[in-house]
Amino acid sequence: MDFTDEQVERYSRHIILPEVGGKGQEKLLNAKVFILGAGGLGSPALMYLAAAGVGTIGVADADVVDLSNLQRQIIHNNSRIGQAKVESAKQTINEMNPDVKVNAINERLTVDNIREVLRDYDVLLDGSDNFPTRFLMNDAAYFENKPLISGSMFRFEGQVATFKGNEGLPCYRCLYPEPPPKGMVPSCGEAGVLGALAGVIGVLQAVEAIKEILSIGDSLAGQLLIFDSLKMVFRKVRVMKDPECALCSPTATIKELTAYEEAVCDLRF
């Protein structure tokens, strides 16, 4: 692939890194990354992946931009309130880097459409805001043989992990076998979240995605990174492949996608 003069300049700080180089930048430009959610985590992840020159970025979200989103969802702004989040995200990316093709999917992903949507991409990021969607995304990623980089957050704490159940490594269900029952656990933005924490976690997902595309460094597959922003401590714990995982073990019982009921927002936990 021949870079234009503008591309050589735009990506010069990547190209001079021996671990990236022209070949790596070409990989990025040819890569297809999908991000579920154009919210707190999706915003920074989308922006850094776009700036990095990831050539095709898919983003799905059914919501519109709300004033209360702007404390953390930095890909949107005041003038976009009421617009579809994916269209707002697309506009920001188009203004940032014309090399990026954005597939804006303004709908809710379900058992019926998610696999078809994911099929076109190389690397998947989960920035969704509820458990049913996280389990659906994990299962769909496994069935479609795609690596999944998952980020989540609550108040002052965040978690990041990479799941490759299809490559003999753990999946999300190996880490957390089942979603919490209704009303048991926090999953709603209404519980509050430190806005800048979304930047930390979403950008870590972008870093992990870029490393995955470039095949450099150590992946978070098989590990869970936990960030406590109040204590300013990062910790990693080991994630084991569950030999009895309902999805990715030899004795798997889940053979097709199933939907979990949407948990009711409950601040009790």
């Binding site: 959610g37 919210g39 707190g40 985590l41 999706g42 989960d126 920035g127 969704s128 805001d129 509820n130 458990f131 996280r134 980020g151 989540s152 957050m153 609550f154 704490e157 965040g158 978690q159 880490l175 957390y176 979603p179 919490p180 656990v185 926090p186 999953s187 709603c188 933005g189 519980a191 979240v193 869970l224 936990i226 910790r235 714990v237 936990f269």
Partner: peptide, 10 residues
């Protein structure tokens, strides 16, 4: 001993 619950905010 670390207690680590699943969290889902995004």
């Amino acid at each position: 001993l670390s207690i680590v619950p699943a969290i889902a905010g995004g």
